[in-house]
Design a protein around this nucleic acid. Sequence first.
DNA 1: CTTGACACAGAACAGGCGTTCGGTTATCAT
DNA 2: ATGATAACCGAACGCCTGTTCTGTGTCAAG
Lengths: 225, 225
Amino acid sequence: MMMVRKSKGLGERHQKILDFIASYQREYKHPPSIREIGEHCDISSTSVVNYYLDQLEKSGNIERDRKISRGVRLTGGSPLGDMFRVPMMGVIQAGEPIPVPSNADFSTFSPEDSVEIAMSLMPAKEKGKELFALQVQGESMIDAMVNDGDIVILKPTQDARNGDMVAVWLSDRNETTLKFFFKEKDKFRLQPANPTMKPIYIDKSESLEIKGKVVMVIRKVERYI
Amino acid sequence: MMMVRKSKGLGERHQKILDFIASYQREYKHPPSIREIGEHCDISSTSVVNYYLDQLEKSGNIERDRKISRGVRLTGGSPLGDMFRVPMMGVIQAGEPIPVPSNADFSTFSPEDSVEIAMSLMPAKEKGKELFALQVQGESMIDAMVNDGDIVILKPTQDARNGDMVAVWLSDRNETTLKFFFKEKDKFRLQPANPTMKPIYIDKSESLEIKGKVVMVIRKVERYI
DNA sequence: CTTGACACAGAACAGGCGTTCGGTTATCAT
DNA sequence: ATGATAACCGAACGCCTGTTCTGTGTCAAG
């Protein structure tokens, strides 16, 4: 029998195994077993699959949980945990109070009303589970560079640091708005995200309820389909 | 022994199991076994865990691959394939041509320079692999409701339908811009996304190069950290 | 009080699966 | 030639794991 000796790098068989693991995972949502890899890659012995898997592990292409059934996984695009769900709590619009989640909401939200975000997209360490999402309704947030239909991801908080973009409810003005927050001597400065627009000032005697800190804005451009 | 009878919905134990599966998966990158669930949820019998798992499956909270080791997974947050990478081709800024990917770029982009998007966030059926991303530099796109630092996801195309938001290069004006595209009698109308701003008109004699259709805009609000 | 459901425990069964070990063949440097 | 090494094969071992079956205590309805 002829066997080709590879000088270095990944051989054809290594690649085939890698591809199979990826496609199997996509189809069955879990990794293949050693025997399944063998069958689909024309390897008749489990020990040979194990042999290749060891090499792929050493070369950093896969990770293995030995002793554990189907404990193979491709390095990188991690199967889970690289994205998380954010519950969609409702809409945010001018003149309406901002819906904020209660503790109950966090545990009972349905997957349908949620937004999936890749971990790699999340700024800093906001990767907690306490985030929530709101859909912007109306064009009242355009001075915050946020348009009708946009999705804003918020982190619930009552106090903001200077420079945070916050969702605030100004009950005196019956107004909901998204602005950059700055605390000044005797008043608050709410700075629109759009640099061409001027800030508004809120006297400390007026009520200003910070409902959350904006972490991300997502706009799906799919109108007129 | 006292046992609390739950009238409906998910009991405390159901929730505990759900939470454990999630945290276990995060830590070990693979689902827990029935026995492991039992240990960490104070259930001494595997049959009882199985009993709860059956209920959670019926209620749609989990999916199971019976007969397969550790074949439990939370519904929704799918392990893989529900997100894909979009290569980050560079920056888009006024006065500079828009970088568009070549075929070579698509196969050789590195994971570091890419953006991960959840499938569920993608509009319509743009779920092809031919998308690419650009980082907005400067504040020249504010009339498109796109700010400095934003990430725009584009689908390369030369022709746009009315109403599409497109990235265009106007070589006569040495200008790069993002606008809603409308073809009119003898000219093109480029409508800013910001409804308070007026459209600009491009005569058909002028050069107008459509580089791509905007599919999504992502803004990470993390300044001033 | 009886009945039936529900919520559990415990044990046993059977198959899945990773590991390991003894062999075999082919390539290559010495 | 020859030993070393890489690339395999097959079978056996044994743990891991999901399934299933029997049994028990509780609670509400009849």
